[in-house]
Write a protein that binds this DNA or RNA. Structure first.
Length: 655
RNA sequence: CGCGGGGUAGAGCAGUCCGGUAGCUCGUCGGGCUCAUAACCCGGAGGUCAUGAGGUUCAAAUCCCAUCCCCGCAACCA
């Protein structure tokens, strides 16, 4: 009986914005899943989408599309993306799938009957126009974060999950099973910030929106994300359905992989739900770092291409997979820059790997007419090379088990580099000049092809297309298992070796960087235009957020805008973002606090003329009274002041 | 004193737990080679291991103490 392996990504929220970060988790899981399959394990790899909730409902309404149609559309682009990236998931779950909805209702019932879910009141701030509840921390200056209007403290009836009941068991879990939550830094984070201070019961239903799974015995309520989304890991296996054979076979999960931002839900709420259901806990929850957008020295933060489709179109899917798998170290963040991407591409994929294949195949063709011959005359360098080939798989396997993905790839490339060195050591072109050395030459070339065979096979889980191309060129059938294939000496004499096209065509760094920057700018331009023109057609939640409701002239007339002259400016102590200004607005000198310390120095602000909202209700920021607001323009990358085109008297009106 | 992570060669990082010649990748410079995708191989230069003529020690990047700086999260972004 095969050993089972169940691995999951989180289910993604279909907001329509998929970029490198979204791909990272999925590609890593894919590599692991493929690897385990080739280790002869029975693998189940799950991914999917979390489609319910207010945000989706609202966006769909605004566009006037049926909510289900809206998510269908979003999901299909995601599935296309996974196809593009060669993601080999075994199942794609959608929380709108009927089997999931039914199972969630049963789970909710079970917890309710057990007494772990109870009805009570949920206190929050309610924004009537938006029909939304907000917690105190979500409020912006005590107002609705969406529309900025007043909110009122309201009680809403809600079902609660007894999270507090499981607090001690959760602390135990994390403290006594250091393997459960990885990397270790997350353990402290969870213990110190959430578990030790005490857990509160969790509101698991809402009445403020309808786009969700109804509470089975109370139609007013829909089940909130916690129980709806997290349970996908078991409902996907048929838990609580007529056929739960997969559940019995694969649960508990061996690995829940996710970004560090949602570790909290998976290491606290999810185990608590499982405890309440009396189901075994997953073996491991792993919160990986993020792929951050770095900044190339020259181009600042601009011009980095983060659209995986664009990158894979231009440089191949495996170039993208390789970068993702190679650049994010265990437990911390990786940085994406065009330069780093191209650097990896050229140095590793083109120069080391591609060129090794190219030169090896070329020599077999040149010296032996393209037929593999196994010589018997060994060289003094054989042993070292073959040792590195024979020990490769073990090293990679060890790293994969510890989730050290970049290190696993490093091991593979170490062998590639060793092989390149072997060519130099044995100098086949010299052997070729001496007829007496023909057998030794055959041996050298055999060892090279044999090394490429093992490298190709071990690369299959990581770079499937590349690995297949390598194997095809050297006439090897793609194996389904590692067993018996990842040791030296298994190449078959007489195999036809082809010298095919370059695996990865080397790029000119400077030209390519310039081209990428240009592409990025064009994409950016397009995005801006799309936002302007297609407000109704292509909708993402992002667009919905930036577009404000229409107002009439009277609304606008309520705002008093004046030209002000900045007299003094200083940083607000204890705050990173706040600057404190005194501004002459004609009528008087005002104290104004703005959150722009990141963008301006104190010196450059003094003496500037700016536009000020002078009839804004005063507020206290960073302990300082702010009597108005200075207008700034923001394009997402930079923030600038808005100034009159020529100097005016302070107090001049703006309308 | 909010929580956490970090400061090691031009860039990105390892080494720190368990003190003992400071290492890897990229870049750079020089050499070699010509099978190969101007690729490959070898070698050099480049580091007061944030600071403190701090403490412990025969010995500190590593352990202890103090300080400074950076980055996340939280709070505040009118």
């Amino acid at each position: 009986m095969k050993e089972k392996y169940y691995i999951t990504t989180p289910i993604y929220y279909p907001s329509g914005k998929w970029h490198l970060g979204t791909c990272y988790t999925t590609v890593v899981c894919d590599a692991i899943a493929r690897f385990k399959r080739m280790c002869d394990m029975d693998v189940f790899y799950l991914t999917g989408t979390d489609e319910h909730g207010q945000k989706i409902e609202k966006v769909a309404q605004e566009v006037g599309i049926d909510t289900k149609l809206f998510v269908d559309k979003q999901v299909s682009t995601l599935i296309d993306l996974w196809k593009r990236l060669d993601i080999s998931y075994d199942k794609f779950i959608r929380t709108t799938d009927s089997y999931h909805e039914e199972a969630v209702q049963k789970i909710f019932n079970k917890l309710y009957e057990k007494g772990d879910i109870y009805k009570s009141e949920y206190e929050g701030w309610y924004c009537t126009p938006c029909e939304s509840f907000w917690t105190k921390t979500q409020l912006v200056d005590g107002k609705c974060p969406d529309c900025g209007r007043e909110v009122e403290l309201t009680k809403e009836s809600s079902y609660f999950f007894r999270l507090s009941k499981y607090q001690d068991r959760l602390i135990d879990l994390i403290e006594k099973n250091p393997d459960f939550l990885q990397p270790k830094s997350r353990q402290n984070e969870m213990l110190n910030n959430f578990l030790k201070p005490g857990l509160q019961d969790l509101a698991v239903s809402r009445t403020s929106f309808k786009w969700g799974i109804p509470v089975p015995f109370d139609e007013e309520h829909v089940i909130y994300v916690w129980i709806d989304a997290l349970t996908n890991y078991i409902t996907a296996l048929g838990y609580m359905s007529d056929d739960d054979s997969l559940f019995r076979k694969f649960w508990p999960a061996n690995l829940h992989m996710m970004g560090k931002e949602i570790v909290r839900f998976h290491s606290i709420i999810w185990p608590a739900i499982l405890m309440a259901l009396d189901i075994p806990l997953p073996e491991k929850v792993y919160g990986h770092g993020w792929m951050l957008l770095g900044s190339d020295k020259i181009s600042k933060s601009k011009g980095n291409i983060i659209d995986p489709i664009v990158l894979s179109d231009r440089y191949s899917v495996d170039a993208v997979r390789y970068y993702l798998l190679r650049e994010i170290p265990f437990g911390s963040d990786g940085i994406y820059t065009n330069h780093a991407f191209l650097s990896r591409f050229n140095a590793d994929l083109c120069n080391s790997l591609g060129n090794l294949l190219s030169r090896s195949c070329a020599m077999v063709n040149q010296y032996f007419g393209g037929t593999l011959v196994k010589g018997t005359t060994k060289t003094q360098f054989d042993e070292d090379l073959l040792n590195s080939v024979d020990s490769l798989f073990g090293k990679v396997e060890k790293n994969i088990d510890k989730l050290l993905i970049p290190e696993a790839l490093q091991e593979i490339f170490n062998v590639v580099n060793r092989a390149n060195k072997y060519i130099d050591e044995t100098a086949p072109w010299i052997l070729a000049k001496d007829v007496a050395k023909k057998d030794e030459l055959a041996n050298v070339l055999y060892n090279l092809i044999d090394t490429l065979r093992v490298v190709g096979i071990v690369l299959l889980p990581f770079l499937p297309q590349t690995a297949r191309k390598i194997l095809a060129d050297i006439g090897v059938n793609e194996p389904t298992l590692f067993e018996n294939t990842v040791v030296s000496g298994k190449s078959v004499e007489g195999t036809v070796i082809v010298k095919g096209n370059a695996l990865f065509p080397r790029v000119n760094m400077e030209k390519e960087l310039a081209a990428m920057e240009k592409m990025a700018q064009e994409t950016e331009q397009k995005k801006v235009e799309e936002k302007k023109v297609e407000k109704t057609e292509v909708v993402t939640t992002e667009v919905a957020q930036t577009a404000k409701k229409e107002i009439n002239i009277d609304d606008f007339d309520k705002i008093e805008l004046k030209i002000g002259k900045i007299l003094t400016a200083e940083k607000v102590e204890k705050s990173k973002k706040l600057l404190h200004f005194t501004v002459d607005t004609g009528d008087r000198v005002r104290s104004i606090v703005s959150g722009v310390a990141k963008y301006f120095t104190v010196e450059e602000m003094i003496g500037k003329e700016v536009i000020v909202v002078t009839n804004l209700k005063t507020a206290t920021l960073g302990g300082i009274l702010s009597e108005g607001m200075i207008l700034f323009a923001d394009d997402g990358d930079s923030v600038v002041t808005v100034e009159p085109s020529k100097t005016l008297k302070a107090g001049s009106t703006v309308s």
